[in-house]
Write a protein that binds this DNA or RNA. Structure first.
Length: 364
DNA sequence: GACTAGTGTCGAC
DNA sequence: TTACGGTCGACACTAGTC
């Protein structure tokens, strides 16, 4: 038995590619898939842009108005609202194909998954490569969708590898080539290292993964905390022992929205939160869950965050109890409120199975 | 010291 | 340089309790 063989598969510019599949005329144009907020106009952000749009610096997370100004000269640029149901449909079908070709399948999100294929290919890297090509072809033929695949001995490296050649890429990092592959990459390529961490490290004059190997685990722990420090120490050395495993159920559900206008008015904010309570409650009901922890999330006009949460005595699935607690949390949060509120959210966590409870009550 | 609760930050997509 | 979504998970830090 050799090392594990792990795939990371990522659908290219997923939402925008879905739109291209539905309407092939879009392929030559810059396409931006947008999450418009309730505020009207161009309030909102870019979810995904195709490569024609990325050429002009448009990428996910960008405010829509910013994207529009960057594409000002591109008269054929297209801005479409997200259509999650349609994307989910394509995603589900592609996931089924991947699942059927793996020993262990781990769903990560609508557009990515890990596959452990070690046994299926008998720990043979050539067979693994053939399997990956087979998956790419089948997804392309059945759904007209392209994806990028990274293959390596673990999830961490496979994830980095799937991003290495995009779109429609296939990158294999053999066990003996791990360091050669990682060393020249920017620190930012390590999943989990985002803006803040990169900035901190760049101030310390570290730029590539090879550079970072100079730091011992104690220095990293001191700078980033025990968990993150140790994670980074291992990651730059290509070490990741986390298994590919079936996805665990969610541990929280939340809904967030941008209000029609910024406000400090208790009743106005509460009416928005109340709508969110109903939506969250519906989700919880569909999933047959109860919750024990309730939280609200306020985003102020300067985009800073304020959260309040509480744990209640007994798990519940009651909408009334949810709304009552949210109201109280809002009251506490608005004491001494200076800035107007822009966005509001409701979250429930500490979930437990409702069926256990009902089967008990049925029993008596 | 171990544990829980609550708040805030970071990061991924 | 301004502009600014929605969901989820991990974890650091702090305060309080036992």
């Amino acid at each position: 038995m050799g090392t594990r063989i792990v795939f990371h598969i990522d659908f290219d510019y997923f939402y925008a590619q879905c739109e291209e599949i539905r309407n092939p005329d879009l392929k030559d144009k810059p396409v931006c898939v947008c999450v418009f907020s309730d505020r009207g106009g161009d309030s909102g952000a870019i979810a995904t842009a195709n490569y024609n749009a990325r050429k002009f610096g448009v990428k996910s997370g960008l405010p829509i108005s910013f994207a529009k100004s960057r594409l000002d000269d591109q008269k054929d640029a297209v801005f479409l609202p997200v259509d999650f149901d349609y994307y989910m449909d394509i995603s589900d079908k592609a996931m089924e194909i991947m699942k059927s070709k793996s020993d262990i399948f781990e769903y990560v999100g609508k557009d990515e998954a890990y596959l452990d294929v070690s046994k299926r290919v008998n720990f043979d890297w050539n067979k693994a490569k053939e399997l990956a090509q087979e998956i790419k072809i089948e997804i392309k033929e059945k759904l007209n969708l392209t994806c990028s695949i990274g293959i390596s001995p673990n999830k961490l490296i496979s994830k980095i590898a799937s991003d290495f050649q995009k779109p429609d890429g296939l990158t294999i990092v053999y066990p003996e080539k791990v360091n050669e592959f990682l060393d020249p990459l920017k620190i930012r390529e390590i999943p989990g290292i985002g803006n803040k961490t990169e900035e901190k490290l760049s101030e310390m004059n570290f730029s590539t993964i090879k550079d970072l190997k100079e730091l011992d685990v104690f220095a990293l722990n001191k700078e980033f905390g025990r968990k993150s420090g140790t994670y980074i120490y291992n990651a730059v050395r290509g070490i990741d022992n986390s298994p590919v495993k079936t996805r665990e159920p969610n541990t929280q559900f939340s809904k967030i929205m941008t209000m029609k206008m910024d406000s400090t008015d208790f009743d106005f904010i509460l009416s928005n939160l109340s709508e969110l309570c109903k939506e969250v409650h519906q989700v919880v009901l569909n999933k047959n869950q109860m919750f024990k922890s309730i939280g609200i999330h306020l985003i102020q006009s300067d985009l800073s965050n304020k959260t309040k949460s509480k744990t209640i005595k007994n798990p519940t699935s009651s909408l009334e109890e949810l709304e009552k607690n949210v109201e109280q949390l809002l009251r506490e949060a608005l004491e001494d409120q200076k800035l107007p509120i822009r966005r509001v959210g409701v979250k429930v966590s500490d979930l437990s199975d409702l069926r256990e409870q009902s089967s008990l009550t049925n029993y008596f």
